[in-house]
Each structure stands twice: as structure tokens, then as C-alpha cells.
Write a protein that binds this DNA or RNA. Structure first.
Length: 888
DNA sequence: CTAGGGTTAG
């Protein structure tokens, strides 16, 4: 009776075991594991076989169920009847898949005896974590001791990629010789790994090809390895040739071959890319097993994305039978790099609703920059919330980096730093991103602290860190720091190292911006062999900033390739130096070459029009802007500014009023316009409107509004505004604002008040402030104060000749001839000469220039007669009107 | 245990 029951139980156990094994082997992992747990819990006498246990552990590993895995481990230890190595190996594999390094090592240590496969598994775990390359190689060396199991071809193929990614050619070669000694080098697997290894170390044409050519039996992997080796080293032609050779040898390409050869096509120039790409597309279509393969379809998609053929992409994407996360990620990223950001976002939302595949780390790394570009801040935060809930995403370094950059680009520097702190394993990109964010937000101390922390953590700065450091130097504009970074990068071969001139370019810009043109030029010369467009544009920009128009033009004329930036710079320097004709001529040449102006071109052009005071050209330009939709707020601000400079203040005001979303620039330009036209009341009114609408004022707009007050004679309202700067807006006035107040008081005749204001200034008054005061003394006939102010002025060694003349004229007007003589002597001793007054006019495309005292113009008698007549006319008119009414 | 796809800093 009992015996029968036991038999029945035994039979039932056997049936259960069979069922569970069937599930596990048939990829019905969840079912298998659930059944197992159910049985193990309910039946005390259940003794699963070693084979069954191994199968269940494998399923658990396939399910990525970490907790369940640990429970199974506990169960195995408790039961203790599993003698075979296969259970331990399955367990090791499981922990390997979970990336649980410690558990793996512990388990490995507990194993009494182990075989090569066990070693291989442990090696795989170490090799897969990227951080333990030295440890992996140490482990491998431990295997070479005589009593340990011999390395197999698989072992070699595990350690060689480790050597490759740490760039350790010597180590790889010793692995190679080990393989030769043990006769494994003819093994295809070993050969393939060697080909990949040598190719990754830049030795494709030599070592890699020798190994490849010597392979006794080449499989499709061998071909793929050498083809991608050529491709990685930029040898596209060789890659293609080998691909054709492969077809001739009648080796059937597989999905990897296609996925390798397609990106090569895309990297060719446009025509070649499409030619080769379509050829391979056709090749794929002829083979059913390739055209339905998701790898191949993804490669196809990526090819058409990279060549910008969005129509084809759409069709392919729609027709794909199954899509995986790579499909979605490629299309999302591809749309973004083709500038179709909103499409990318829509696709992402569709992906979230797509239930069979879920977004992974790459999805978020791609989508966060798009949120930043489109300023979808709340969406980015929602995504952050989604990430936080999933440890596999939250612990991913690349996702963390993307979050840091997202917050940094959205001006949420604190959130960016929080995200940075949350990254468990920071890499060089994490540090560089955070450093860059601190530079861009001018958090100089935080930047320095972070840099110190980074170096303390033994992170070696790379080229991008250097670029960030250079930007920091520019930001604090300290020449000594630039030199320090320069020395550092020389020591670490960042400048002379690789072929890229990027760091040299940045260094050039930094020297120029810190005022050391000599060093900037030296860098430019040292880059001679590898200058690119950016190098030339940078040196031109440096010349433009220092006003050296001729030097800029010398570089400009020697450049065989120019982009919009090049032209913009050259047009700008002409505009800055009042060379309006050259600027316009250059602009026409630019247009004749079929190039399209951008915002910066227009800004330079507007500066030209404001020099020319040509409302007519300005209206033409305005028309062009409207037709080409080039109307961002900054351009509108500039347009408004130039309209008012050309005297069309009501045109400017209309433009201002018609703009529904006015920003600080708009208000600044409008107030500046009113200031220029002496319309202080109007300026004040819109300034108060602006404050009321919640826009935060900056130093520049205070300068504008103060100068409006001073030109409009609104002394007390001006003073009130000045004091509100610190009281209401918490801003410390700078030299410009002090100068405005001095002008305000002096112009209004409150000279002694102006003088005591200057005397009480918390910063040392600049020479031009004394100059302003002196000018006012002249207009208000204040000789005594003029003398005092003059003393201050010449003490500060001003080289502005205007001041000497003003003071001299002041003395002259009061008939103080001795002092006049004194001034002339002083001017002579300082070797000043007054430049001749000059004016010019353009009539029917011909320019006429007039210099004081010059009578060389062919039509001078007509001109001077007309001038006389006009003067007469004005005098008659003025007799009838007050001066004020003439300006209304 | 073995080649191989998509992403982030300038």
C-alpha cells in the first residue's frame, strides 16, 4: 500500500519534471519556473534532478529574474544533492547575465574543481563590465598555471576583445603567440578574433590581413571581421573590394555582412552612397532570409536615414513585419539628425504605446536632447520620472549623462547637478558634460571645484575636457589660465597629437579673446598643415575683434573654401570700420555665389545700413526678411534700432507695437530709439510697461533708459530710475550707468551736483566721465569747474584729443588766452594733432568726400553756393520758430 | 563561453 503510494508519488514527480523541462527547453521560461516553484514549495519529497535544476536556472536567467535567481541559489544550497558541475555552471551563467560580479566570484571560489568552460564564463563576466580589463587579464594569466585547465579557442576569443579595447597591442600579441604555441592559431574562431583584434588596433592592412589570408577555413565571420576592420580604419575601397571578393568565393553574406557594409555606403559621397546602397538593397531583396531579417532591415533603415531619404525610410518602416527597439531608436535618432525633431517626438510617443517592445536606454539618450532643443521641459521631467522608476535605466551612465545635458540645456543647472550626482558609474562624458554646464552658466567656482574632484577621482582629462577648460578661460578672460591650459595640452599631446585642429582652433580663439594676438597668430602658424575652415574663420574673427580689417581680408582672400560664417565676419568688419561700400560689395558677391544669408549676415548688413543712414535700403532689407521668414526677435530688435537711427522713429515704433511677444532686446532697442530722438517721456512709459509685464531688466536697458532721460531733460525721473537699479532690482550699477547719470545732471545744468556725484562714485571714474563733465562745463560756461575737471582728466592720461580741444575752447570762449596757450603747449608736448573733420555723401552711386579746408572737389563752387543758400534759408526759418519746435 | 546593429559631451 505504502509502496504503491510512493510509486505513484515518484511517477507524479517524474511527470512534473518532464513537464517543467519541456517548458524550460521550449522557451516557455515563465511557465517552467512557475511550475517548478509550485512543486518545490508544496512537496517536501521533491528531489529535482541535476539536469532539471540546470534547465530551471537557465530559464530564470533568460527571464532576468534576479531575486528569483537568488532564491534558486538558496534552494540549491539547502538541498545540497547536486554534485555535477552543470548546476554550478548554470548558476554562474545566471549571475554572469545579471552582471553580479561579486556573486560570480564567490561561486567560482566555492567550486572545488572547474573546467575550461567555467573559467570562460567567469572571464566573460569580467570582460563584459568594461571596468575590469586589468582584472580580466589577471584572471586569464591565472589560467596559464600548469594545474589549471587549458585555455580553449573560446578563451582566446574572450580575452582578445579586452586587449583590443584597452589598445594593448603587446598583450594581444602575447595572446597570439600563446595560441600559436598551443596550435590554436589555425582555429577559425581564434583567427577571427585575431583579425578583429588587429583591425581594432589599427593594424588592418598588416597583421589582421596576414592572419585573415592565412586562415585555413574562412567562415562568414572571418569575412565580416576583415570587412568591418577595413571600414573602421577608413579604407572604404578595400572594404568594398573584399566584399566583392567574398561574393566571388561564394560565401553567402549574412545579416552582419549587410549591417557592416551599409554604413560604409552611407559614408561615401552622395552619388556613390546611393549607387552602392541601392545595389546592396537589391541584393538583399533577392534573398528572402535577408529581407525579412530585422538586423538587415534596421541596417537598410539606417542607410536611408543617413542619406536623408526620408520617404524611403517611411515606406520601409511601415512595411517592416516586426520592429525591435533598435528599429525605433534608429528612426527616432535619424529623424532628429535630419532636423525633424517633432516627428522624432511623435515617434517616441508612439513607441511608448507600442506594447511588445519597450524603450531602452538608447531611446532615452536619443529623446532627451530633442526635448532640450524643443524646450519641452515638462516632458523631459516626465521622462526623468519614468527613468527613476526603472533601475536598469536609472543606473545607466549614458542615460544619466543625457539627463545632465538635458537639464543644463534647459538652464536648470541645479537639476543638472542633481542628475550628475545620481549617476552611479560616472564616465568621462559625465564629467565633461557637467563641467561644460558650469562654464556656460558662469558658475566659475563650482567649475573649479568639480574639476578638482574629477582629478581627485583619477579621471584623465581628454580633448573635450581641454576644450571645456579653454571655454572656461575665455569666460573668465584670464590670459595666464589660457597659457596654463596650453602647456597642459602640449604635455598631453592634445594639440600636436591627432590630426584634428579643433583644440588648436579653440586655443587660438582663447588667446585672441584674452587680448594676446601674438600667441593667437603663433598658434595659427603652427597649425599650418592642418588648418580647416574653422581655423581660418577663427583667425579672421580675431582680426575682426581687434579691428584689423586688412589682415582679416588677407586671410579671407586666400581661403579657397568659405562658409556663411566667413562672409559674415568679413561683412561685419567692414561695417564696424565704416567701410559701407566694401561691405555692400561683399554682400553682393556673396549673393552672386548663390549663398543664403543667415541671421548674422543680416545683423552685419543692418549695421551697414545704420552707418549709411539709408532708410531706403533698410526697407528693402526689411522686405527681404519678411519674404524669407528671417525674423527672429533679435533681428527685429536690430531692425527697429536701425529704423530709429535712420530717423524713422515712427516706423520703428510701429514695428515695436506690432510684435506681440516683445523681449528685453526689443524694449532696449525701442528705448534706445526714443533716447536718440529726445523722446524721454515715451521711453519712460514703455520702460515702466516692461517692468510691469515682468521682464527682468539688465544693465544695458538701464543705460538706454538713462540716456533717454538725459536727452529728454528728465533729470529727476532719471535719478529715480538710477537709484531703483539697486533698490528694486538688486543690480549694482556699472561705469556706463554712472556715466549716464553724470551726463543727465551735467546736461541739465546741475554741474556741482554732477561733480559731487562723480567724487562719491564707489568705483574709479573712467576718463570719459570726466570728459562728459568737461563738455558740460563748456556749454554752461563754468570755467572754474572746468579747470578742476580738466586736471582730473589729464591726470588719468586720457589720449582723447577731444578733451584738450573742449577745454581749450572753454578758455577761449571766456577769453582766457593764457590758459588757451597753455593747453596748446600741452597738446603739442603730448604730440596730439586734431584730425581734420570729414564728411561724405553718395549721389547716384558716386561718393563725394569733403575734408575741412579741402577745395579740390570739381563742383566746389556750386556746392558751396548751395550750402550758403541753405544756411541762409535755415536762418530765416529759425527766426520764426523756437529751437525746440524745430525738433518736434 | 564565440562576430554583429541603435545613443550622450565639442
Amino acid at each position: 500500500m505504502i509502496r504503491d503510494s510512493l510509486d505513484m508519488l515518484e511517477q507524479s514527480f517524474r511527470a512534473w519534471s518532464a513537464m517543467i523541462r519541456e517548458c524550460c527547453m521550449g522557451s516557455r521560461h515563465w511557465e517552467g519556473v512557475s511550475l517548478f516553484i509550485q512543486k518545490a514549495r508544496s512537496s517536501v519529497g521533491f528531489r529535482p534532478s541535476t539536469l532539471l535544476m540546470a534547465a530551471v536556472i537557465k530559464s530564470c536567467s533568460a527571464l532576468s529574474a534576479t531575486q528569483l535567481g537568488k532564491a534558486l541559489h538558496g534552494y540549491v544550497l539547502k538541498k545540497g544533492h547536486f554534485s555535477s558541475l552543470s548546476v554550478s555552471k548554470a548558476m554562474l551563467n545566471m549571475y554572469a547575465k545579471f552582471r553580479a560580479l561579486d556573486d560570480c566570484e564567490k561561486l567560482f571560489g566555492e567550486l572545488g574543481s572547474c573546467d575550461t568552460v567555467t573559467w570562460n564564463i567567469l572571464l566573460t563576466v569580467f570582460a563584459s563590465s568594461m571596468k575590469f580589463d586589468t582584472e580580466t587579464m589577471g584572471l586569464f594569466k591565472g589560467m596559464l598555471i600548469p594545474e589549471q585547465p587549458k585555455p580553449s579557442p573560446v578563451t582566446i576569443s574572450i580575452v582578445l576583445p579586452v586587449c583590443a579595447r584597452s589598445g594593448d597591442l603587446v598583450m594581444g600579441k602575447s595572446v597570439h603567440s600563446l595560441a600559436v604555441k598551443s596550435g590554436m592559431d589555425m582555429h577559425t574562431l581564434v583567427g577571427n578574433s585575431l583579425v578583429s583584434f588587429y583591425a581594432k588596433c589599427g593594424q588592418v592592412t598588416t597583421d589582421a590581413f596576414t592572419v585573415f589570408a592565412g586562415l585555413y577555413e574562412k567562415d562568414v565571420v572571418s569575412w565580416n571581421a576583415i570587412i568591418s576592420g577595413f571600414a573602421e580604419n577608413g579604407l572604404m575601397y578595400e572594404a568594398f573590394r573584399t566584399f566583392r571578393w567574398m561574393l566571388r568565393e561564394s560565401t553567402e553574406p549574412n545579416y552582419t555582412t549587410i549591417a557592416t557594409i551599409f554604413p560604409i555606403c552611407a559614408s561615401q559621397d552622395e552619388n556613390a552612397a546611393l549607387f552602392f546602397g541601392r545595389e546592396i538593397h537589391a541584393f538583399v531583396l533577392r534573398r528572402a532570409e535577408l529581407s525579412t531579417d530585422i538586423f538587415v532591415c534596421n541596417a537598410l533603415l539606417m542607410f536611408y536615414l543617413r542619406t536623408g531619404q526620408m520617404q524611403v525610410v517611411e515606406t520601409l518602416f511601415r512595411r517592416m513585419q516586426s520592429r525591435d527597439s533598435v528599429t525605433w531608436n534608429s528612426v527616432i535618432a535619424g529623424c532628429a539628425s535630419n532636423g525633424e525633431w517633432s516627428t522624432a517626438l511623435t515617434l517616441f510617443q508612439k513607441f511608448l504605446l507600442f506594447d511588445t517592445v519597450t524603450p531602452d536606454s538608447v531611446t532615452f539618450v536619443s529623446i532627451l536632447p530633442i526635448c532640450a532643443v524643443l524646450k519641452k521641459i515638462s516632458m523631459g521631467k516626465q521622462i526623468h520620472g519614468y527613468i527613476v522608476q526603472r533601475p536598469s535605466l536609472a543606473e545607466d551612465t549614458t542615460v544619466g549623462n543625457a539627463l545632465v545635458n538635458f537639464y543644463a540645456k534647459c538652464d536648470e543647472i541645479d537639476a543638472a547637478f542633481q542628475a550628475f550626482l545620481m549617476i552611479p558609474q560616472r564616465d568621462i562624458i559625465s564629467w565633461n558634460s557637467m563641467l561644460d554646464a558650469f562654464v556656460n552658466t558662469r558658475n566659475h567656482w563650482k567649475f573649479l571645484n568639480l574639476l578638482a574632484w574629477m582629478l581627485g577621482e583619477r579621471f584623465k582629462p581628454d580633448g573635450i575636457t581641454i576644450l571645456t577648460l579653454i571655454n572656461f578661460c575665455i569666460s573668465i578672460s584670464r590670459l595666464m589660465s589660457v597659457k596654463e591650459v596650453h602647456c597642459y595640452s602640449i604635455r598631453y599631446a592634445h594639440i600636436l597629437g591627432d590630426g584634428e585642429p579643433t583644440i588648436g582652433n579653440a586655443m587660438l580663439v582663447a588667446y585672441a579673446k584674452c587680448g594676446d594676438m601674438g600667441s593667437a597668430l603663433k598658434i595659427f602658424q603652427s597649425l599650418s598643415g592642418k588648418r580647416n575652415l574653422v581655423t581660418c574663420n577663427s583667425i579672421i574673427a580675431a582680426y575682426v575683434d581687434s579691428g584689423s580689417q586688412d589682415d582679416a581680408y588677407k586671410i579671407f582672400s586666400q581661403m579657397h573654401e568659405k562658409d556663411v560664417t566667413t562672409w559674415n565676419l568679413m561683412i561685419r568688419v567692414y561695417a564696424l570700420n565704416n567701410c559701407v561700400n566694401e561691405a555692400l560689395y561683399l554682400f553682393h558677391e556673396f549673393r552672386d555665389r548663390g549663398m543664403e544669408p543667415d541671421e548674422l549676415t543680416i545683423m552685419s548688413l543692418l549695421a551697414v545700413f545704420s552707418q549709411m543712414v539709408s532708410a531706403h535700403l533698410l526697407r528693402q532689407c526689411h522686405g527681404y526678411l519678411v519674404r524669407n521668414c528671417l525674423e527672429d526677435v533679435r533681428i527685429k530688435g536690430a531692425l527697429l534700432d536701425v529704423y530709429s537711427k535712420c530717423g524713422s522713429i515712427w516706423y520703428a515704433y510701429n514695428l515695436f507695437q506690432s510684435n506681440p511677444n516683445k523681449d528685453l532686446f526689443m524694449f532696449t532697442a525701442m528705448i534706445g530709439g526714443f533716447a536718440m530722438h529726445g523722446m524721454g517721456e515715451e521711453a519712460l512709459e514703455i520702460f515702466h510697461d516692461m517692468i510691469g509685464s515682468g521682464i527682468k531688466p539688465d544693465h544695458i536697458i538701464f543705460t538706454s533708459v538713462l540716456s533717454a532721460c538725459s536727452h529728454g531733460g528728465l533729470i529727476d525721473p532719471g535719478l529715480e530710475i538710477f537709484y531703483s537699479m539697486e533698490k528694486l532690482h538688486g543690480m549694482k550699477p556699472k561705469m556706463e550707468q554712472y556715466a549716464c547719470v553724470v551726463d543727465l545732471l551735467a546736461r541739465g545744468g546741475r554741474l556741482s551736483e554732477a561733480y559731487s556725484f562723480v567724487a562719491k562714485m564707489p568705483i574709479k571714474p573712467a576718463a570719459h566721465i570726466w570728459g562728459t563733465l568737461l563738455g558740460a562745463c563748456k556749454s554752461h560756461h563754468e570755467v572754474e569747474l572746468g579747470r578742476v575737471v580738466g586736471a582730473h582728466l589729464f591726470e588719468s592720461e586720457s589720449d582723447d584729443i577731444g578733451n584738450y580741444i573742449v577745454l581749450s575752447n572753454l578758455y577761449a570762449a571766456e577769453e582766457k588766452w593764457d590758459e588757451v596757450l597753455e593747453m596748446r603747449k600741452l597738446m603739442k608736448s603730448r604730440d596730439f594733432k586734431k584730425p581734420a573733420g570729414c564728411s561724405w555723401i553718395e549721389v547716384e552711386r558716386r561718393e563725394s568726400v569733403f575734408v575741412a579746408g579741402d577745395t579740390s572737389h570739381p563742383e566746389r563752387s556750386l556746392i558751396y553756393d548751395t550750402l550758403l543758400a541753405i544756411n541762409q534759408h535755415i536762418k530765416e526759418k529759425l527766426a520764426n520758430y523756437s529751437i525746440e519746435s524745430a525738433f518736434i
